Amino acid sequence: KLATQLLVDLAEGCHTHHFNSLLDIIEKVMARSLSPPPELEERDVAAYSASLEDVKTAVLGLLVILQTKLYTLPASHATRVYEMLVSHIQLHYKHSYTLPIASSIRLQAFDFLLLLRADSLHRLGLPNKDGVVRFSPYCVCDYMEPERGSEKKTSGPLSPPTGPPGPAPAGPAVRLGSVPYSLLFRVLLQCLKQESDWKVLKLVLGRLPESLRYKVLIFTSPCSVDQLCSALCSMLSGPKTLERLRGAPEGFSRTDLHLAVVPVLTALISYHNYLDKTKQREMVYCLEQGLIHRCASQCVVALSICSVEMPDIIIKALPVLVVKLTHISATASMAVPLLEFLSTLARLPHLYRNFAAEQYASVFAISLPYTNPSKFNQYIVCLAHHVIAMWFIRCRLPFRKDFVPFITKGLRSNVLLSFDDTPEKDSFRARSTSLNERPKSLRIARPPKQGLNNSPPVKEFKESSAAEAFRCRSISVSEHVVRSRIQTSLTSASLGSADENSVAQADDSLKN
């Protein structure tokens, strides 16, 4: 292990032709098999893994070397290190390495390699500790012929580059190093199909959405987006994914797998022009299946994007999809995704031109529960009313008269009656009930004795009459309010007539 670390330190600071010789020695160290011998017992696995620490030291050392060589000349050094790393990870899946030390190597290698970024000039870069990406002036992410390196360097940008540029090249004859992302992409596909350690798979799935944002990485080298989509959909639809995973937390289920895969599918929607129609349908189907899991909100957001990006695919699945959405409970976490999906859909009339009455009724059935102001915040309630109004205007004229009683009944049950079921009123009724029952229970537990009763009969009569009056008032709060309003209006009217009579009498006395 110490000798391997010494080789790594020497290679990191070497800029001459001896660098390749040092890498040859490190490569021989990495070539050791990580498969346990067949006769190895389970209690000896930890000791055997400790004997392979030099392999881990070599791989982690290459990660440090690549981070240094990416910004220094010659660029061919970075290319050689990158290829060695990718080849080593491929061996893991070729020979099915399952030892804990092998999983640790893959975890740290993917953690580093999935941080690679590219700008519009195809320059590769890595983020620093502050998250700012520094791009290399010597390494690009696409394949290029050595003699055409300078031509590639002087080509115009596709868009303004992001991030601070690296140091300027030493001279005009500098050759750019090619670090094609397709090599890593193929290893990522192998990981999605064969990885057995949940920690490694979770890391890859968590980092892929951010990497897919940099389309330069994908399009400048032959990366098959179709295969990526197929691998992701197979993970969700195939039963073998959960069987092969180990190291998963207790209670791990298909729902947890959906939570990890759906963000990658959402990021892949922007590549729909490069996906086969069959793959697009598979993607939409997987998102529909996710509606029954805890990732339902993410799936609804993804389907909203699909309705804009892939209208030809979503239009066929939309009638059944809208009916499925009615089975989702009206909760605060689902309110905004569902209502925004319906609001977006209302502005795309070509998608729902074939809707029948059942689909329009489903839209109103989804939106009406969110009009309850005692359960949802003001934004959700306003958005629900907006969706109902928009869809009522957009639905066909023959359907409107049939939906009017349905909508008014839903609004009455969710908006008007919600004020009668407020917690304050319920607590008031509970308190009044307890007050009504309390005197009775006290009389049963403690019967009054005439000799020891010091309270006069008049006081008892007053208290009983007050309790009886309170019971009468607490029967119905709404009736009490109505009666008080009527009494107030009658009182004001009587006072007004009394004032008029007094004024008339005063005038008569003055005349006399």
Score class of each variant (00 low, 15 high):
Ser49Val: 06
Ala50Trp: 06
Ala50Cys: 10
Ser51Ile: 05
Asp54Tyr: 05
Lys56Ala: 10
Lys56Gly: 07
Thr57Leu: 06
Val59Thr: 07
Val59Lys: 01
Leu60Ile: 13
Gly61Cys: 00
Gly61Pro: 00
Leu62Met: 07
Leu63His: 06
Val64Gly: 15
Ile65Tyr: 01
Ile65Val: 08
Leu66Ile: 05
Leu66Asp: 01
Gln67Thr: 06
Gln67His: 07
Lys69Gly: 01
Leu70Asn: 01
Tyr71Ile: 02
Thr72Trp: 14
Ala75Val: 11
Ala75Cys: 09
Ser76Thr: 09
Ala78Asp: 00
Thr79Leu: 09
Arg80Met: 05
Tyr82Gln: 01
Tyr82Lys: 00
Glu83Leu: 07
Leu85Trp: 00
Leu85Thr: 04
Val86Pro: 00
Ser87Leu: 07
Gln90Arg: 11
Gln90Asn: 12
His92Ile: 00
Tyr93Gly: 00
Tyr93Ala: 00
Lys94Leu: 07
Lys94Arg: 10
His95Thr: 03
Ser96Trp: 06
Leu99Met: 08
Pro100Cys: 03
Ala102Asp: 01
Ser103Met: 06
Ser103Cys: 08
Leu116Val: 07
Leu116Asn: 02
Leu116Tyr: 02
Arg117Asn: 03
Ala118Trp: 02
Ala118Glu: 01
Leu124Thr: 05
Leu124Ile: 14
Gly125Arg: 01
Gly131Met: 04
Val132His: 09
Val133Ser: 06
Val133Cys: 06
Val133Gln: 04
Val133Ile: 13
Val133Gly: 04
Arg134Pro: 03
Phe135Arg: 03
Pro137Cys: 05
Cys139Arg: 02
Cys139Leu: 12
Cys139Ala: 06
Tyr143Ser: 09
Met144His: 07
Ser150His: 11
Glu151His: 13
Lys152Phe: 10
Lys153Phe: 13
Thr154Tyr: 12
Ser155Glu: 11
Ser155Lys: 10
Ser159Lys: 10
Thr162Val: 13
Gly163Thr: 10
Pro164Cys: 14
Gly166Arg: 15
Ala173Arg: 14
Arg175His: 13
Leu176Trp: 11
Gly177Thr: 14
Tyr181Ile: 04
Ser182Asp: 04
Ser182Phe: 06
Leu184Gly: 05
Phe185Tyr: 06
Phe185Arg: 01
Val187Glu: 04
Leu189Asp: 02
Cys191Val: 04
Leu192Gly: 00
Lys193His: 15
Lys193Val: 09
Lys193Arg: 08
Asp197Leu: 00
Trp198Tyr: 05
Val200Phe: 01
Leu203Lys: 08
Leu203Asn: 10
Leu203Cys: 10
Leu205Trp: 00
Leu205Ala: 01
Gly206Lys: 11
Arg207Met: 05
Arg207Lys: 09
Arg207Trp: 02
Pro209Ser: 12
Glu210Ser: 07
Leu212His: 00
Arg213Glu: 05
Ile218Trp: 10
Phe219Lys: 10
Thr220Val: 02
Thr220Gly: 06
Thr220Tyr: 02
Thr220Trp: 02
Pro222Lys: 06
Cys223Glu: 04
Ser224Tyr: 06
Val225Arg: 01
Asp226Cys: 03
Cys229Ala: 09
Ser230Lys: 06
Cys233Lys: 02
Ser234Pro: 02
Leu236Val: 07
Ser237Val: 08
Pro239Arg: 10
Glu243His: 08
Arg244Thr: 05
Arg244Phe: 03
Arg246Trp: 05
Ala248Gln: 08
Ala248Gly: 06
Pro249Lys: 07
Pro249Tyr: 07
Glu250Lys: 13
Glu250Gln: 11
Phe252Met: 10
